[in-house]
Design a protein around this nucleic acid. Sequence first.
DNA 1: GTCTATATTTTGATAGAC
DNA 2: GTCTATCAAAATATAGAC
Lengths: 193, 193
Amino acid sequence: MSKTATAIADAFQDLVMQRGYNAVSYADLAQLLGMRTASIHYHFPGKADLGLAVLRRYTEAFFQALKEPTPDDPQSYVTAFESFLAPIRHMLTRDDTSCLCGVMSAEYASMSEDIQNELGAFFAKQSHWLATVLDGGTRAGVLTCPGPAKETARLMIAALQGATLIKKSTHDARYLENALDGLEALIIPGKKT
Amino acid sequence: MSKTATAIADAFQDLVMQRGYNAVSYADLAQLLGMRTASIHYHFPGKADLGLAVLRRYTEAFFQALKEPTPDDPQSYVTAFESFLAPIRHMLTRDDTSCLCGVMSAEYASMSEDIQNELGAFFAKQSHWLATVLDGGTRAGVLTCPGPAKETARLMIAALQGATLIKKSTHDARYLENALDGLEALIIPGKKT
DNA sequence: GTCTATATTTTGATAGAC
DNA sequence: GTCTATCAAAATATAGAC
């Protein structure tokens, strides 16, 4: 992605995480970046292209930030779990943005088919990764699950998504703090809130 | 609210819960209801009026469905808690809609000030009600909280919101099922998934 | 790659007849 | 209360000069 394309994608992503996909226009981006809408169309022919590009970049970065556990090292499951929470914990630094995938899911029926598929894949993949870590960590004796790993993974992902949304409308970081700390305390033995 | 106004509000709410607020137009509603956009403007002068009316109706219905606990009856805390989950469990019957407040929170920065305030109040009020029930139920010995009532309440609300969003993009009801059952199992002693 | 200019469609909204 | 007619602005997008 070129420098300009990256700047456009950055600006778009930021605004979508605040307002939602359908509330951001090429005109908004053009003004913000000091260019014309035609220039944006050169880099991203249509809005759906821009949306998909930003979403793909976002999900790729998300999965690349995850640390894979090594089955022979029990503690690596804890490290893997923490690598999952770290980027989400970083969202506490902004009270006006939610996860891009959560926002786009809210607007699901108005998204392009490509974006819809990408969203579904994001949650499925995330769910599978987390369940594997929870399962392995439980077997290794370094994590405790209140229920089946798959179900606990889904509950956790839902809680974190919900918290990043609610923190926008309440301006209250405690929803995300409580979700992060509460889930950590539930899953990592000895960890207390 | 008149019969027509109610029909407009119903249609609007349903579409917003699927697509998001900014993806629903007066033209969509007019076509769906077999009337002209001018007729809708008669009942709701502006889109923000319609959005606020629908949101107010939604939150009022939500709180009216809650059963208040009676401090002298321990079991009433369990009943109160169940009355909170029941309408959310009902959302399992649709895989294409999310909670109106979650959707609007996703689009928060593009909402009118009135709507923003209503959203903040909804989560604050819900949070307070649930924390009171969890606290009372714990003291009465019929509920168990893994942490402080206030924090557990926030975690639960976040999990349920997130689950209704994710179920749209995954077409997978298990996110909401696992959130409902998992939280219930966590809070009601003896209840097992 | 970015611009000017322009086109098309949609959106949110109003005036006034019926 | 609903309609026709109309509107101004915005959103998405393209053609072609520079």
